[in-house]
Amino acid sequence: MAEQDSLITEEMQATIGVESEPWTLEIDKTSVRMFARSVGYTDPVFYDEEEAKRAGYRNLPAPAGYLGTPIFNPNRASEARGSRPNPEPSRPLKRMLNGGTDVEYTGQICAGDILTATNHVSAIEERQGRLGEMLITTSKTVYKNETGETVAIVTGTGIRY
C-alpha cells in the first residue's frame, strides 16, 4: 500500500507558534464554589470567604484546574477563547479526545481576579495508534493577572482521530 500523504497541511504548519488574541477570564466566587463542588472538595476555604481569609488567601482560592470563566459574548462565540478556528487536516477526522493537561502555577489565583490568556499551538504530530490515524496537537496557554504577573501556564494535548 502506498504511503499516505501527511495529515498536516502547510496551513496547519503555519499556525504553530502564532500567538492568539488575548481573552479575558473572570474568577468569581460563584464559579469557584461551583467548580469546587463539581470536583467534590470538602475544604471550606473554597466556599466560605472568612475561612479562606483565615487560611491566608485574599479570597476564595481557585481550585487546581480552575482558571476562570471566559466572558461569553453571543456575537463572538467562536472567538470566546481567543483562538481562530483551526485549519482542517488533509483527510477528515471526526472525533476528538483530550490527551492530557499539565498546569504550572506561578502565582496565587483567587476570586475577584481577572485573568488575561493567550495561547498558541506549540506542536502538531501525526501517529498511528490504537485509534487508527491520530493527529496530536499540543498548545500552550499563558494566564496573567491584572498586575501582569504570569499566574499559570497550561500545556494541553488534543487528539483527533
Binding site: F35, V39, G65, N98, T101, E104, Y105
Partner: peptide, 27 residues
C-alpha cells in the same frame, strides 16, 4: 479527562492543606 486532572488536584490539596501550594500538576 479534565475532571480526572481536577481530582488529582484535590488529592494534592487534601494532602498538603492550605499552608502548602501546588506548583505543578499534570497528567
Amino acid at each position: 479527562g479534565a475532571l480526572k486532572h481536577a481530582f488529582l488536584g484535590q488529592l494534592l490539596h487534601d494532602w498538603i492543606g492550605n499552608e502548602g501550594s501546588i506548583k505543578k500538576v499534570g497528567c
